[in-house]
Design a protein around this nucleic acid. Sequence first.
DNA 1: AAAAGAATTGCAACTCAGTTGCATAAATTT
DNA 2: AAATTTATGCAACTGAGTTGCAATTCTTTT
Lengths: 144, 144
Amino acid sequence: MTAEEILTKAGVRPTHVRDAVLKRLYEAGCPLSHGEIAAHPGMKRYDRVTIYRTLYTLEGAGLVHTVQGIDGAWRFCAHPPDRTGCPGNHPHFLCLKCGKMQCLTGQRLPWVEVPERVRVKGKQLVIYGICTACGTAEERNKNK
Amino acid sequence: MTAEEILTKAGVRPTHVRDAVLKRLYEAGCPLSHGEIAAHPGMKRYDRVTIYRTLYTLEGAGLVHTVQGIDGAWRFCAHPPDRTGCPGNHPHFLCLKCGKMQCLTGQRLPWVEVPERVRVKGKQLVIYGICTACGTAEERNKNK
DNA sequence: AAAAGAATTGCAACTCAGTTGCATAAATTT
DNA sequence: AAATTTATGCAACTGAGTTGCAATTCTTTT
């Protein structure tokens, strides 16, 4: 199924930006910030605001889920419908150095008890630290 | 033990701002954002930047722990040393309406497995939704 | 007690993520 | 084709947080 078909099926018009953004997220396979998306060469011809709005549209259509990074920027994540395993209900890891985020699939968010009469709309568990790539890069620099 | 003594014991000079901010956090008993702290009448005479720096100082001294809200603002939380139960290692609830955050003490953060060679520096679990107060206020308005 | 040095505070200016309003352009509907 | 709705671009704005630097205040040294 192409991104275009997925968009149509989800009930949103398959415009250029939407197609491009959704494809970019599918290719990345990990949550991307608005900045990371907008920085992509193929994305330059779209306005920043349009990209924001596109992301919110995709989120509203249920094609994208969001997580907030410790760095204050939201990440947007999408997976093609045939690839299961990333329904958004899992922890995420954020590298404080390179800013890349990854889904920790295979683990579920825990059940959390809240005070009575509190209406829960969502939850997110973010682990942060230094990713493998940045960690080994540091080691290499030390041994120089 | 007064806030002043606590500051001294923690190894930071007990200046006016530090004393005032720490007391404010103690009184609040729940995580406050920089904005919520700065808005307090007794805090008006201090510069925003000074309050930021004070919070970071207190955090560095181990007197304050931090959580990030879904709304993009960090919260700072402190409890007097005699009151146990809030070491920062618990989930937090954020009300999307009034912006108030509360510690869900009595529950621990879950163990999360991360990819090999990843260095974990911290984690946080935030539940968000509508708090009891805002929820009942909504109900009341509906029945008008 | 005065001078030197270090730590703290205030102010101005800045960055960065995200939002809002409005005009234009492109689809859809009639 | 005209009217209406939806999508995009642009400019300007907000709000959280940061940085640099000068002015103050505190501590240490002599």
